[in-house]
């Protein structure tokens, strides 16, 4: 008979402390391209190699639209861009509703909704509960019904078959409510784009307030996004110029 309590006590606290000033533990984030100054031709070549148009030429260098970057890493390498190892990626969209304040800061109920996600986003969203991250210390809880949820965390490009369920879930939520789109697919359809089978992002169906770019965004970035939704984190830039 395995004594799980004893085992876990022996192992001690596995949750990592997190301070913005300290670097993230290795492997926590895949990182993402850093906008750089460079000459025109090199920038054009990089923009050319980017399959989603996330890299755009803007003199004097290259700027990055993180909402499109799918981490294909084709721009990475000796002649390519440097990648930055951070995870504060979540962006508050312009014109969206403000962060949930007040009592939500310490008690936020989140409904995760798979709207056609590949499993990567789901895997990372699952892990925000892993011992290393320990979601509950932030007062954030995952709930299984939208009736109890303050925040809808949407992943996936929103397939046509899930358009109605997504809308229903959003409508079933009580006010005030916010929608967070996680992953490039949920932001604009990602590699799937807009097609006969895919709506091309959550914003096509429900009003999105916060986006968490990444393919997939790592657990740390997701937590940052949830904290941003309650005004406990700062918003990153959606597009960064060199």
């Amino acid at each position: 008979m395995a004594n799980w309590v004893l085992h876990s006590l022996k192992r001690g606290i596995r949750t990592e402390r997190y301070r913005e000033s300290e670097p993230l533990p290795a492997g926590t984030t895949p990182g993402r391209p850093k906008p750089q100054r460079m000459d025109e031709s090199a920038a054009a070549a990089l923009a050319e190699c980017c399959p989603t148009g996330a890299l755009q030429v803007q003199s004097p260098g290259i700027r990055v639209d993180f909402g499109r970057c799918i981490h294909c890493q084709r721009c990475r390498g000796d002649e390519g861009l440097e990648w930055r190892q951070d995870a504060t990626w979540a962006t508050h969209l312009e014109g969206a509703q403000e962060s949930l304040g007040g009592s939500f800061r310490r008690a936020l109920h989140v409904r995760y909704l798979d709207a056609g996600a590949c499993g990567g986003c789901m895997g990372e969203a699952r892990l925000i509960d892993a011992p290393q991250y320990n979601l509950h210390r932030y007062g954030i809880f995952i709930t299984s019904t939208p009736r109890d949820a303050d925040l809808l965390l949407v992943a996936g490009p929103v397939t046509e078959a899930l358009r109605r369920p997504l809308l229903d879930a959003y409508e079933a939520m009580p006010e005030p409510k916010r929608v967070v789109a996680m992953g490039v697919c949920a932001i604009n359809g990602g590699v799937f784009g807009k097609s006969f089978a895919s709506c091309g992002g959550a914003a096509e169906v429900v009003p999105v307030d916060i986006v968490i770019p990444g393919c997939p965004p790592p657990p740390r970035a997701i937590i940052e996004g949830l904290l941003l939704a309650v005004g406990r984190s700062r918003s990153a830039q959606a597009v960064e110029a060199p």
Partner: peptide, 12 residues
Amino acid sequence: VVWRRAWNGGLR
């Protein structure tokens, strides 16, 4: 008070 359809797991 807002009346909405009961949430039924996304069924039509």
